[in-house]
Amino acid sequence: MTRIDDTFVRLKAEGKKAFVAYLMAGDPDVARSLAVMKGLPAAGVDVIELGLPFTDPMADGPTIQLAGQRALDGHMTLGKTLQMVRDFRAGDATTPIVLMGYYNPIYSRGVDRFLAEACEAGIDGLIIVDLPPEEDEELCIPAQKAGLNFIRLATPTTDDKRLPKVLQNTSGFVYYVSITGITGAAAAQATDVGPEVARIKRSTDLPVIVGFGISTPEAARDVARVADGSVVGSAIVKEIASGKPVSEILAFVATLAAGAHSA
Rank of each mutant, 00 (worst) to 15 (best):
R86F: 03
K80C: 00
L99M: 05
Q65D: 06
V166K: 05
G125C: 07
V197F: 11
G229L: 10
K12F: 13
I106T: 11
A241P: 08
G147I: 03
L66M: 14
V30C: 09
E218N: 09
P132K: 12
G243N: 03
F173C: 03
Y103S: 07
F212N: 04
Q69P: 05
A116P: 11
C119Y: 05
R10N: 13
A258S: 04
I97A: 08
S108W: 08
G26Q: 05
D130K: 04
T2S: 15
D87E: 11
R109E: 14
P245G: 14
G39N: 02
C140Y: 05
I4E: 13
G181D: 04
A254V: 00
P164N: 00
I97M: 02
D192C: 07
L82F: 07
P217E: 12
D29C: 06
G122N: 10
V177L: 13
D136K: 14
G101T: 00
C119G: 13
D136L: 10
A219S: 14
A59R: 06
P96W: 10
R113L: 13
V177F: 07
I209C: 10
L11G: 11
A71S: 06
A118I: 01
D222S: 12
A146E: 15
A241N: 07
M37L: 14
Q189H: 15
T95N: 13
A198T: 09
I209L: 14
L256S: 01
F212C: 04
A185P: 08
D5T: 15
L139R: 11
E134H: 14
T77D: 02
V36C: 04
Q144W: 05
A93Y: 03
S247V: 03
V129L: 10
G51L: 03
S33T: 00
R109Q: 12
T63K: 03
T81N: 04
A90Y: 02
A220V: 04
A146Y: 03
T7Q: 15
G15I: 04
D46F: 08
P57R: 00
A116N: 13
L139S: 12
